[in-house]
């Protein structure tokens, strides 16, 4: 336990310490080479966002978008620690985005937000742009004759009853290394007590922990795992658009939907253009493109309606508590205790 806390502190220090420039995974230019430049840093990967960006430059031939994709912690670091001059920041890590807004890094802006629900904005600084349901994926082949679970209780019962079939074949994010993974288990733990029972069952089955959605989905499709718990839906849509073997389970006791949110940093070189981009992201046109991959529309009427089981996570000051070092340490300790069983 001590060691674990130490490890977390070291990790946190590692993130905070000035370790040079933030890391970018991919960079892409959209639009005219000599246009009015709009720089965006985002956690959404390029293939997913490309149709939206292309639609934007189609409407504005003078635009030149420099799109940088990075991990959520890198996005946070770029703005919070390095104060990089970027026009628009998009991230699915709601707690980090909220931290940026609370710490004064988000400029007050007034984009056109027709139809945007109240819970999808934080004052005039942070705006939800897409809903991303968090699903459980299952392989039809792997399940065999078992009926797909409809609730977490079903899932727990199924895993308990067939330890031989699921041993080493259940996957989820590693909350130690994945920001989204940590955020999701903290949501889970505050939402229901049955989560810890699930965690214990998963721990007994030697659950495999992944850093990223892509690998998890690849392993699922190649048959190495059968169940992937807590996968962001848009990734599933992207990596396996129409794999007949893949079952997308929106568990009926509750299915989270996290929000991809956007803010304009206070030191943005062109805040007006960034606001214009944000307004565009909230138009029915852009919303329809994004709803296609996530399966649910953020603004009602621009895509598939949300199911009754869907629980969108609000943009709320309460999100600040997830960044607390002690809270994080306690939660991860509990998670590790469930995972690593004697």
């Amino acid at each position: 336990m001590r060691d674990l806390v130490l490890a977390i502190v070291t990790l946190a220090l590692g993130l905070i310490a000035p370790a040079g420039a933030f890391e970018i995974e991919e960079e892409r230019i959209f639009g005219a080479p000599q246009g009015r430049e709009l720089s965006i840093i985002s956690t959404t990967d390029v293939p997913a966002i490309a149709p939206v960006m292309e639609a934007f430059v189609r409407h504005r031939p003078e635009a030149r978008i420099r799109y940088m994709q990075a991990a959520s912690t890198e996005v946070f670091r770029a703005i919070h620690d390095e104060q990089a001059e970027i026009d628009l920041v998009m991230s699915s890590a709601m707690d980090l985005q909220m931290r940026l807004a609370n710490d004064g890094f988000a400029a007050p802006i007034s984009p056109e937000i027709d139809g945007l629900p109240d819970w999808a904005r934080w004052r005039d600084q942070l705006f939800g742009v897409a809903l991303e349901p968090v699903l459980t994926l299952a392989s039809r082949r792997g399940l065999g004759d078992l009926a797909p679970p409809r609730t977490r209780r079903d899932l727990i019962a199924m895993l308990r009853e067939h330890p031989d079939r699921f041993d080493g074949r259940v996957a989820t994010y590693d909350p130690q290394s994945s920001g989204v993974g940590y955020f999701l288990i903290s949501q889970d733990s505050s939402q229901s007590d049955s989560f810890w029972r699930l965690a214990e069952v998963m721990g007994r089955l030697n659950t495999r922990l992944y850093c990223c959605s892509g690998e998890m989905i690849n392993d699922l499709r190649s048959g190495r795992i059968t169940i992937a718990y807590n996968v962001v839906a848009s990734y599933a849509a992207r990596y396996a658009p129409d794999d007949p073997d893949l079952i997308r389970l929106a568990l009926e006791d509750y299915t989270f939907a996290i929000q991809r949110s956007a803010l304009v940093p206070v030191n943005a070189p062109d805040p007006e253009y960034a606001t214009e981009m944000l307004s565009f992201l909230l138009t029915p046109e852009a919303q329809a493109i994004m709803a296609e991959s996530s399966g649910v529309a953020l603004i009602p009427g621009t895509g598939p309606a949300a199911s009754v089981h869907l629980r969108p996570v609000r943009l709320d000051a309460g999100l600040l508590v997830y960044g607390d070092q002690l809270r994080r340490g306690n939660l991860l300790a509990e998670w590790t205790a469930a995972m690593v069983q004697p």
Binding site: L320, L326, R327
Partner: peptide
């Protein structure tokens, strides 16, 4: 020390 920063208070 366990410290479970309350979500509701911040909210």
């Amino acid at each position: 020390l366990a410290f479970d920063l309350p979500y509701a208070a911040f909210s």
